[in-house]
């Protein structure tokens, strides 16, 4: 019994990363970031507006939050739809109560599925970022570059036309990427992507066709991750966000501006038994000194201007 000799060879055992996607850099070695008005903590609340089709295909990986039962999985289909019909209105009400502006990540397919909701979002004037075409079109490692390029182009185009705003940001469905994703996004004019979770601040990411910025959107603090993957209680969700807020604020006292990125789903936090815990979180955060509620683009631009 033995493994191929290559298993004990390490061609990328060298200084820095084991790839050319971005440079190795410790957060503590970088120049401190100063947010507008000398705020300490940028708050980025990212609301997902998603379509999970009933006829989900067999992908090389499960669709996060997708269908789980034999066809037709009406349970998950309708519960996800609940978010776009009911839950999101609760979320908007809560965010507005505390004067916190969300950034809204929208599947392209939702534009035609929910025109009323699109009008509401357009009237609100929030930043919209592209979130792929729908949740069963995962940008996983085995998707062809042609398919992926088309999905990206379609998503960006329909959102920019519908909302009459430039689409600068991208969040992949299920947060998967192929090896081509960053380059294809950069070629479509996307300025920042939110899939990578390896930092607490934006950083520059390299592609064959130029630079794109990675904006870390915490998965560890994602509502679906805490409540559904970890099966923690609503009270614990609130405690975890509050503890994160405290830690980042205290770090910002000595190390420069920090960012609290909350990715949320209307079909999770928009439930009647969860919305109060979300309100509690928003009340806590907005009562802290030095919090800057901003869109993803505002955070990105402030960071970019200091590079």
């Amino acid at each position: 019994m033995s493994l191929d000799d290559s298993y004990l060879q390490y061609p990328k055992r060298q200084y820095g990363m084991d790839h050319d996607l971005y440079d190795w850099s410790m957060l503590s070695d970088r120049n401190p970031i100063v947010w507008p008005n000398n705020k300490k903590l940028a708050l980025w609340v990212n609301v997902n507006v998603q379509f999970f089709p009933l006829n989900q295909r067999t992908n090389p990986v499960p669709v996060p939050g997708g269908m789980k039962m034999p066809y037709p999985d009406l349970r998950h289909f309708s519960l996800r739809d609940y978010g776009n019909r009911v839950g999101i209105f609760r979320l908007f009400k809560a965010l507005d109560k505390f004067n916190i502006q969300p950034t809204i990540a929208i599947n392209g397919a939702m534009v035609e599925r929910a025109p009323y909701l699109m009008d509401v979002i357009k009237d609100r004037g929030n930043e919209v970022i592209a979130h792929g075409w729908q949740m069963d079109m995962l940008h996983h490692g085995e998707v062809s570059a042609e398919d992926e390029a088309r999905w990206i182009a379609n998503s960006v185009q329909i959102l920019s036309e519908r909302f009459e705003q430039p689409i600068k940001g991208w969040l992949s469905p299920g947060r998967l990427q192929s090896a081509n994703t960053p380059k294809l996004l950069q070629q479509q004019g996307i300025e920042y992507m939110c899939d990578w979770v390896n930092d607490d601040l934006p950083y520059s990411f390299k592609t064959d066709s130029g630079l794109i910025t990675s904006m870390p959107l915490s998965n560890e603090l994602d509502d679906f991750f805490i409540l559904q993957n970890n099966l923690h209680s609503e009270d614990s969700y609130a405690e975890q966000i509050e503890d994160a807020c405290d830690l980042l604020l205290s770090e910002a006292e000595t190390q420069g501006g920090r960012m609290l990125a909350l990715n949320i789903h209307p079909w999770m936090l928009g439930q009647p038994h969860r919305i109060a815990c979300f309100e509690k979180v928003l009340e806590y955060i907005s009562s802290q000194e030095g919090v800057w509620s901003a869109s993803a683009s505002e955070i990105y631009q402030s960071w970019q201007s200091q590079q």
């Binding site: 990986v61 490692g141 085995e142 990427q177 090896a179 990578w196 390896n198 607490d200 998965n219």
Partner: peptide, 15 residues
């Protein structure tokens, strides 16, 4: 668990 590149698992460890 995913085909290359598995950015979720890799990314948080790099974090």
């Amino acid at each position: 668990p995913q085909p290359y590149p598995a950015i979720a698992g890799y990314g948080i460890r790099d974090y």
